[in-house]
């Protein structure tokens, strides 16, 4: 199993396509950082209009922590795509390449194969999130310096002191890993149905986009289903930047995401175990 996992990772990281995701993360974060360097002041002033009318805020508002938060917020929709690129390819890509039938003629169980695909996707996701942390947070801190962070919610202005931020980022990145692992398990599930990676990648994004829209629509009809959509809980990382941190809500979100992940994985195993490999 370990050897199988090792080779799975070897295959992922020997493939040039894998590094596109890391490149995209670097590019997006750099673009946002450049934009903030040149025009961040007016961006912040625009967002802070309501506050600035009544309070005078002095100090380095545009610091690395705030930029990191802005980047994380903007990458909300991109990172799932990058995760789907690899996880959606995991089974369908092998089927398309023709290697799936060769793998399955070897004495390994299909459960084992799914598990290895899942763990390798999780490792890839983790590395991507770590890279995101390096680019979004540490590069921003290096470029913009440290300071207290302002978090603007629709109905609240939250100030978090700089000494109180690093653990929040750590927890937020851990939460993001969980959320992205749910995406990975969805992509693997859809990947089991296809013999071509494009389908599951696009389908994963389709599901994420549609459900994200439902999660954000302020309509009573959707309010009933919202708590059960995994996309509603994917932004749970933001809870760590709230004051007080809504631990109960975050715990609930973690539970929903873990349940979805296990559900997708279980359904993949059920389906794939009975699937005729005709590719």
């Amino acid at each position: 199993m370990i050897k199988l996992l090792w080779f799975e990772l070897y295959k992922i990281f020997r493939r040039p396509r894998t590094y596109i995701s890391f490149g995209i993360v670097t590019a997006i974060t750099s673009v946002i950082q450049l934009a903030m360097l040149s025009d961040g002041e007016s961006f912040v002033n625009f967002a802070m209009q309501g506050i600035n009318e009544q309070f005078e805020i002095q100090g380095r508002i545009m610091n690395g922590y705030l930029i990191g938060y802005i980047i994380l917020q903007s990458l909300l929709i991109h990172i799932p795509l990058l995760v789907a690129l690899v996880a959606g390819d995991s089974l369908a890509g092998e089927a398309n390449l023709g290697t799936l039938r060769l793998i399955l003629t070897r004495p390994i169980s299909r459960h084992q194969l799914i598990l290895v695909k899942f763990i390798s996707s999780f490792i890839y996701t983790t590395l991507l999130i770590i890279w995101l942390a390096v680019c979004a947070l540490f590069f921003s801190l290096w470029l913009f310096g440290t300071g207290d962070m302002i978090n603007l919610k629709s109905d609240a202005f939250i100030l978090i002191l700089k000494d109180d931020l690093m653990w929040r980022y750590g927890a937020a990145f851990l939460f993001a890993m969980l959320a992205m692992t749910t995406i990975a398990s969805l992509a693997i599930f859809l990947s089991a149905f296809a013999d071509n990676a494009i389908g599951p990648i696009i389908s994963t994004m389709g599901v994420v986009v549609v459900l994200t829209i439902l999660s954000n629509l302020e309509l009573p009809l959707f309010n009933l289903v919202k708590p059960y959509l995994f996309t509603t809980h994917m932004i749970g990382w933001k809870g760590f930047f709230d004051d007080p941190v809504p631990y109960e809500a975050i715990r609930r979100s973690c539970f929903v995401l873990v349940a979805y992940t296990i559900g997708f994985l279980g359904m993949t195993m059920l389906y794939f175990n009975k699937k005729d490999i005709r590719s």
Binding site: E53, Q54, F55, E56, G59, L159
Partner: peptide
């Protein structure tokens, strides 16, 4: 290194 918040002047 931190932000200061005061009511308007």
């Amino acid at each position: 290194g931190g932000l200061s918040i005061l009511p308007k002047k």
